[in-house]
């Protein structure tokens, strides 16, 4: 291309920028019109709340009074010196860790068992997956009844082992495990289905090659299946962990965070502060901490996924 041609191209494109073609203009307005409902709602109900929470976290406010009192970092100071906050944080992390680890291990085992042509496969899958779509409030209701110390179903299974009746939901040591059991129970199906999808993506030729080399099933799992499943495992670990950090429904119905905060978790503590005790500023500070933790996990995930995961 000669210099003159280049110049005219440049001029043309500059001209285009200044004066949009009717078509580009039409497209721009169409784009704005089509996406406006979504972005207006996202702006008001998703993005603005971050700013507003940050703002509120510097105030003392009961949500009803017209006056908000500026108190600087007082809410954060209260939070970090509040033993209940630390207990709640510890509970949340314990809950997230055990829920995710146990759930993944069982789900992977079930997915491996199901990853063949067996009779009744779709029935097994449908039933094991069903808690995923079951109303959590109803799940909490039936499990509260199962955990009931005198007439509960769980006691039937503990009695043969000589375990005395446990008042799961009223016990400082057993309330959090009870919540974890329910979360594992209701989450296994989802993880299993995703593991099944991951297993489907592994090419059978690799196993054929391994068969020729006389590889044992155990080696097959550790050297082929497990590494090739790592994208799924990684995805489920991160999303499961974040999901568990947001646990609310089961805790609220089964234990209400009690007894003595032994099963209280961040979102439930936030709910109590905001909507039962009307400590809006303090609850906003809690919300912000939760937001920061979840953002940090998401960013770490983006950084590490390429390093840890074998595609």
């Amino acid at each position: 291309m000669s210099k003159r041609q280049l110049d005219s191209v440049k001029r043309l494109s500059l001209g285009e920028r200044r004066l949009m073609s009717p078509r580009a203009k039409r497209d721009m307005w169409a784009f704005i019109g089509f996406t406006a409902p979504n972005f207006i709602l996202l702006g008001i109900f998703v993005f603005w709340p971050i700013v507003y929470s940050l703002f509120l976290s510097f105030f003392k406010w009961n949500m009803i009074a017209p006056k908000k009192t500026f108190i600087g970092f007082q809410n954060y100071h209260t939070m970090f010196t509040d033993p209940v906050f630390w207990q709640v944080t510890k509970n949340t992390l314990i809950l997230a860790f055990f829920t995710v680890v146990v759930k993944l291990a069982i789900a992977l085992g079930l997915a491996l068992a199901m990853n063949k042509h067996i009779r009744g496969r779709s029935v097994y899958r449908a039933i094991i997956f069903s808690p995923t779509f079951t109303t959590s409030v109803a799940i909490a209701m039936v499990w509260s009844w199962i955990f009931e110390p005198t007439f509960g179903l769980l006691r039937v299974f503990m009695k043969p082992f000589g375990i005395p009746p446990i008042d799961w939901l009223e016990s400082v040591t057993h309330s959090l495990p009870a919540v974890i059991i329910v979360l594992i129970w209701s989450g296994i199906g989802y993880d299993m289905v995703l593991f099944l999808a991951g297993l489907k993506n592994i090419s059978l030729e690799i196993y054929d090659a391994a068969l020729v080399d006389g590889v044992s099933p155990w080696q097959n799992f550790w050297y082929i299946t497990f590494p090739l499943l790592s994208p799924t495992t990684f995805f489920l670990t991160i999303t499961g962990f974040i999901g568990a950090l947001k646990a609310f429904d089961i805790v609220a119905i089964m234990t209400d965070g009690g007894p003595l905060n032994s099963s209280n978790v961040i979102v439930h503590f936030l709910y109590q502060n905001a909507f039962q005790w009307f400590k809006t500023g303090y609850a906003s500070a809690l919300a912000l901490i939760l937001f920061i933790i979840i953002m940090a996990i998401t960013l770490v995930q983006n950084r590490l996924s390429s390093r840890w995961v074998h595609y």
Partner: peptide, 10 residues
């Protein structure tokens, strides 16, 4: 990526 729980109060 934004958890819905942060939006409860606002």
């Amino acid at each position: 990526m934004i958890p819905g729980q942060i939006a409860l109060i606002p």
